[in-house]
Amino acid sequence: MAAFESTGAASLTLGGRAFTPGASRVAVLGAGVMGPGIALVFAEHGFEVELCEVRQPALDAGMASLADALDLKVQAQVCDAATARATLSRVTPRLGVAVAIARADLVVEAVPEDRDIKRAVYAQVAEVAPAHAVVWSNTSTLDVFALAPPALASRLLVAHWFAPPHILPLVEVVCQAPAPVSLREETVALLRALGKAPVVLEKFVPGFVINRLLRALGRESFDMIESGVISIAELDVAVRTSLAPRMQVLGIMQRYDYTGLHLSLRNLADPEIVDAPVNRSPALLQARVARGELGVGSGKGFYDYAGRSTLELQRERDLRLWQVMRGLAEHAADPKPI
């Protein structure tokens, strides 16, 4: 709760109403990949949260994931055991969504990326939620503004978090009319108070920013691997030891300043460097999917995880991410150039 105490939590509003820990309630719909981490962030800042699912096994798995994430924070010395217990006590598992929606001041939609599912959820929110309740969608690609009923249009926006959401600071924010600009500003202020780094998109574009950049990187990566230029493992080593650390300091656009814009212009115009063709179904992915090699969840993808459980792999990933985020401190979210 320290972040709230240092950012004037008493002055935070959402939808023009006070939004404060201990008084305002949050309903997180969906306990899959993203919901538990989002619920954790609100709970550790003092909010009462209901984590909702429509199937008991999925709800149990989501709560187990949340509890494990808190245990890992203690192990990583990011918080102490008492704080972790207090955080967990503020999250109520809820089978079904109607009860939580009916008393929420903020509804966070984190259900699967399926238009029909989201459309049905928004219809229920419009019917059950209080008239003042704001709705954030965690969609990563979809135009949810076209899926929601008119009754939600003035209080719906996109707040797209990144996995794992309790570690990575970025949240992409998209708000469009008839929702007022003030709602976007309130959302940005709230996310900052939660310790997040919100970035505002001036208009909706499918995939938003980071997923579009990842598509471009993936297109080149798949093409080079399939063309025999480099192996999968060597490509990952190249990125981890060059692009990744430099981007953490400079991002993309400031890196051009350090290279020199005249040199960057010349490099982009080099006729000998031909961009990879657009290929929406790379053989590299097709073959593995056909064999059932889907990644960490199936035990094998581009790498063989040798029977290690998904939870074990996630814990190792998250410990390393906590180490990285400690080193970044506040610089990563500072818009001022270095």
Rank of each mutant, 00 (worst) to 15 (best):
T141S: 12
L142C: 00
D143G: 00
V144K: 03
F145D: 00
F145G: 01
A148K: 08
P149D: 00
P149W: 01
A153I: 03
A153S: 11
S154E: 07
R155D: 02
R155K: 11
R155G: 04
L156T: 08
L156P: 06
L156C: 02
V158N: 05
A159L: 05
A163S: 13
A163H: 15
P164C: 03
H166Y: 14
P169G: 01
L170N: 00
V171D: 01
V171C: 11
V173C: 09
V174L: 06
C175L: 06
Q176T: 06
Q176N: 07
P178I: 04
P178A: 02
P178L: 07
P180S: 02
R184T: 04
E185K: 13
E186V: 08
T187Q: 04
V188F: 09
V188L: 09
A189C: 08
A189W: 11
L191N: 03
R192C: 14
G195A: 06
K196M: 10
K196L: 10
P198M: 04
V199Q: 04
L201K: 06
K203Q: 15
V205I: 14
F208T: 07
V209I: 15
I210E: 10
L213Q: 02
A216S: 12
A216E: 12
A216L: 12
D223V: 00
D223G: 07
E226Q: 09
G228C: 04
G228N: 06
G228L: 09
G228R: 12
V229I: 11
S231P: 05
I232F: 11
L235I: 08
A238C: 08
T241G: 02
S242G: 11
L243P: 04
P245G: 00
P245A: 01
R246A: 01
M247I: 04
Q248A: 12
L250F: 11
G251D: 00
G251C: 06
G251W: 01
I252V: 13
M253S: 11
Q254V: 05
Y256I: 15
D257N: 08
Y258C: 10
H262N: 13
L263D: 10
L263P: 02
L263V: 14
L265K: 15
L265N: 13
N267P: 01
D270E: 13
P271H: 06
E272M: 14
I273P: 11
V274Y: 09
D275K: 12
A276L: 10
V278A: 13
V278T: 15
N279G: 08
S281T: 15
P282W: 09
P282I: 12
L285F: 15
L285Y: 11
